[in-house]
Design a protein around this nucleic acid. Structure first.
Lengths: 255, 255
DNA sequence: AACCTAGATTTGTCCGGACATTTGGCACTC
DNA sequence: GAGTGCCAAATGTCCGGACAAATCTAGGTT
């Protein structure tokens, strides 16, 4: 009873997963109040600290709103028109639509010249395996993205497996090579559809687009996958919903 | 010890502010290892739980990297070329360059038609005070932004004070009306410089630009300030540096 | 009806302690 | 010299308890 046995997951994580499951399956509906901390303590036979650790995780994920004296309620999901994807927590910037698929169109080993090195923020001359792919949305055929995935050459054997439903590239690397993701950086930049991209993106030249660059780092900030996605979009693409992490202005704004 | 008058602030917050101050003032340099948790316990005469709460805050702010068995080190700041602004934590998306100034060019009360209501995500027909302003960077005269700030009409008396160095609009509202910011949402969308914006932005028509929309909410998610900024930029504008908030794919991707 | 107050409820803060897990370095062996 | 095993150090997890602060509700008062 006291020992961990659920896949080595800590108990607060197990509890969080249970609650996340209840929310995603609709057993806890939007706006509904979660059981109080003390009730969760009794129900799951853990300490209040563990309960709060789990709830903090749900808070970090943007799933709940907490208020002293009131309680914890399931946060509303914002309904969004097509193209618009609301991100409630930073981690969601790493996710892709569930009904999308990546189709590899080619792979080639490249050496980072100055321009590429600057784009990827890697050393000039370093070797990378460049995997080009298209991401298509089934439900929204117009939404498409061009993606170049830069991998450490030693991970070339995962290329045939890219495109598996629900598996991101870094997850493949994690599964097949044990390289654990320790740090992710996401960049967004504005641009326009260039002549080279107009074809694959099925978008007119000059149409505004967003470039999303994802850096996946392992231990010691060693980058092992860098994915560069071009999204043609005249609409808003990402939004970030924040609630935590305030800092007082006097200690910070002088930086 | 706590010679600073931080009454009313929780102790973990006071400790966090001390550490943030040490980092920002260079007393703790990048890459340097912070004192261990137990040492901080002794030095500040608080429990380890309080120390961890403070360190969690620094982690949320993206100031430190923690690793079990190793310790806590000050995270490196990424140097960025002009125009590029690297954001290490979500809260930084709310900050503006310290050497910028907002110049109000006009204010008018408007009623949200359907288009504006959709842009701002507010009710059609609601009344807003639209304050137009320019943000200029002194050190980088080319970097300029056009900002429309939509306020609840009742806050009209803050308009003359907009532009005060280091004060954001929501901070003025907080200071003068006691409306506390409880929730912030940041949106980013891609676009091009339109004819109407080409003049004020000093940018050619058709140049790619980023629109950043910031929603400031009070209690109960009541929006009281919405700022819409147009940044002419053919380069990357915001990046988000993430390290926390992982979620397992099996519980989440089906959403 | 409008206002106020007391109590119950809920989350926030803080303390003390204990053991687990990860990592790096040191002494040791071969 | 290279590998091995052990130990110390550091963060991670988890428990128990206590009081504070914010909020809501019910009841009483005006």
């Amino acid at each position: 009873m006291g020992k961990r046995q659920d896949r080595g997951q800590p108990r607060y994580r197990q509890l969080a997963d249970v609650l996340i499951g209840d929310i995603s399956r609709g057993r806890l509906k939007v706006g509904e109040t979660l059981p109080g901390e003390l009730e969760l303590v009794e129900r799951f036979n853990v300490s209040r600290h563990t309960v709060r650790e789990a709830l903090r995780r749900l808070d970090d994920l943007g799933l709940i709103d907490r208020q002293q004296g009131v309680g914890t309620v399931v946060r509303a999901r914002r309904s969004s028109p097509s193209y618009v994807q609301t991100v409630r927590s930073p981690s969601e910037l790493m996710r892709y639509p569930a009904d999308s698929r990546l189709v590899v169109t080619g792979a080639v080993q490249v050496r980072a010249n100055r321009q590429l090195a600057r784009l990827l923020d890697v050393r000039t001359g370093s070797e990378w395996l460049k995997v080009s792919a298209l991401r298509r949305l089934k439900s929204q055929p117009v939404a498409i993205a061009w993606t170049d995935v830069y991998l450490l050459p030693e991970y070339g054997d995962i290329v045939p497996h890219i495109g598996r439903r629900g598996q991101l590239v870094y997850q493949l690397i994690e599964a097949m090579h044990g390289e654990r993701v320790d740090h992710i950086r996401v960049q967004i930049r504005a641009g326009v559809v260039t002549q080279e991209l107009a074809g694959p993106l099925e978008a007119p030249i000059g149409m505004p687009s967003l470039t999303v660059i994802r850096h996946y780092h392992g231990r010691g900030h060693r980058p092992f996958e860098i994915s560069v996605s071009e999204h043609p979009s005249d609409r808003y693409l990402y939004s970030l919903d924040l609630q935590r992490g305030w800092q007082s202005s006097d200690t910070w704004t002088t930086q």
